[in-house]
Design a protein around this nucleic acid. Sequence first.
DNA 1: AGCATCTATTTGCATATACAATTAAATGCA
DNA 2: TGCATTTAATTGTATATGCAAATAGATGCT
Lengths: 149, 149
Amino acid sequence: MAPPKIKPLVDTIAEECLAVRLRMLNRVVSKLYDDALRPLELKVSQMNILVATGKLELAHPADLCQHLHLEVSTLSRNVERMKSRGWLEVVPQDDGRSQPIRLTSSGKRLLQKAAPAWKRAQSQAQSLLGKKAADLLKDAAGKLGSRTL
Amino acid sequence: MAPPKIKPLVDTIAEECLAVRLRMLNRVVSKLYDDALRPLELKVSQMNILVATGKLELAHPADLCQHLHLEVSTLSRNVERMKSRGWLEVVPQDDGRSQPIRLTSSGKRLLQKAAPAWKRAQSQAQSLLGKKAADLLKDAAGKLGSRTL
DNA sequence: AGCATCTATTTGCATATACAATTAAATGCA
DNA sequence: TGCATTTAATTGTATATGCAAATAGATGCT
């Protein structure tokens, strides 16, 4: 029998899909930050983790994941790389299951050094998205539960 | 000497970084679609490519990448997987460098079958983000140049 | 024709991400 | 004490992503 008409469906999804748009924006905006941070050999994904860890001071993986809406297994691999670079360290606890981490001095220095690059990327992203979209982005992120971080 | 004060910097980035928010939203929203599409063994990243290919009818990798703001190397690998699943096929050209692709019948049928799952995820994403943010998302994506797709 | 150059795509390598399964440690209860 | 259960994190496996380098084919110039 004749193949089903695919065109209307394709047009609908192409014009309306929120995921395709969000994923595109994510790629473009992440690249702005990655480009700015490249001289520091730091990626925006890693900077996010450094910041969230600094915010919590002593950060349990599961807590970080709740704040960042990241899978624990994803975080585990990222932290592994960042420990080996000397930016994070584990702080042993009474409960041997816990492996909470904190910033090392080196990690803190890296964040300080990254600040100007972050500011540049942030302002590029701001101009690209426009103020309204940028504000809405904050609102939307707030709706994800587990406070903004 | 004393370590630099890291707290104010961490607070600023945590509260204002657009990338961290966009990346979080991307993870959460992509998961809505991936969950809905899982029974079809289809990921939202792949659905995006199927749709963009369907839209162009005969799609050159470089064109797809421009529309989707994707690296050609990324697309190359994704297309490889999708060819091996029988959803896409290469259409040889006079210019031997060109490797334009199109949907196979199987790829079209898959899209048809995926439509209800897409609709469910789309409406979940809509509720999560709210109408205003969803609309802004379209505007913002429009700012990326190379028309909406 | 022959060669440098340009263009389209793929390949090598590394990180990011998620799901499922596993390990390790604490806890509760018989 | 001993064992099932629960909790915290890691490990196995696969896809997604991007940068840099390599390949392959077309094109233009001499």
